[in-house]
């Protein structure tokens, strides 16, 4: 088991030549829970899409001990569970069951195992009874939980989440933070929610203009008000 993310000199250019990522370097050890913070447009979402090969830049991306190449793309995608910001993008199937079963189905698992994975993933996010439901009729908080279950059903080593608490009311946010604390996977969370970062994630990466400008213990970063202000952040 590797459970690691290792990025070296990652550069990603838009079609017009502008650099969204401009030489990113970091290493995340097994079981670490890390925050990725920075202003809008810093390149956070772009960086996350590199972690399972949806975007391919120049430089090296090693995830779960594998270098991302076209031949091991599907293995990488099974190892990295990506949870998108808008659950309406992540939940594209007619029912909750279909959505959670999607990953295991494309891993080629037999039916009994697919069903077991779905049950397990829904239990992990405490949404067991929602399998036959239609996603549209769920609340945002419920959708976020199901979105996490769609990643968990692939039994990933690493979970990558984009703004998991955005749009949640205080209670749903609290529930989600409890849920994230329970999950054992290595975790990288892009977020503006610095109170959650302080509570949940011991280490923080600050990304601005496509570069990691600071990589340190969360407490040290949150105490550095000049740094926060310089990169469009605010002490919680």
């Amino acid at each position: 088991m590797h459970h690691t993310i290792e990025i070296r000199e990652l550069v990603f250019k838009y079609p017009d030549g502008a650099r969204a990522l401009d030489g990113v370097n970091f290493y995340i050890a097994p079981g670490e829970k890390v925050a990725l913070v920075g202003p809008n447009g810093a390149g956070k979402s772009t960086l996350l899409l590199h972690l399972n090969g949806i975007l391919r830049g120049e430089g090296s991306v090693r995830v779960a001990g594998m270098e991302i190449t076209p031949s091991n793309l599907l293995k990488i995608r099974a190892a990295v569970g990506l949870v998108f910001q808008d659950p309406d993008d992540q939940l594209f199937s007619p029912t909750v069951f279909d959505d959670v079963a999607f990953g295991p189905l494309y891993q080629g698992l037999p039916e009994a195992q697919v069903r077991a994975r779905v049950a397990e993933a829904l239990a992990a996010v405490r949404m067991q009874d929602y399998a036959p439901r239609v996603s549209h009729h769920l609340s945002v908080g419920q959708k976020k939980r199901i979105a996490i279950a769609t990643a968990l059903s692939m039994q990933p080593e690493i979970l990558v989440l984009d703004e998991p608490t955005a749009g949640l009311d205080p209670r749903a946010r609290r529930d989600l933070i409890h849920l994230l604390r329970e999950l054992p996977q290595t975790m990288l969370i892009a977020t503006h929610d610095l109170r959650m970062v302080a509570e949940l994630l011991p280490r923080t990466l600050v990304l601005d203009q496509g570069r990691i400008v600071k990589d340190d213990a969360t407490r040290a970063i949150l105490d550095d008000e000049d740094l926060l202000r310089a990169h469009g952040l605010e002490k919680p």
């Binding site: 899409l49 399972n52 949806i54 599907l74 995608r77 099974a78 990295v80 990506l82 998108f84 808008d86 993008d89 992540q90 594209f92 999607f102 990953g103 494309y106 891993q107 769609t150 990643a151 692939m154």
Partner: peptide
């Protein structure tokens, strides 16, 4: 974005 979400799960 949906395609990305599908691809992320092995589509």
């Amino acid at each position: 974005r949906i395609y990305d979400a599908m691809a992320a799960r092995g589509y």
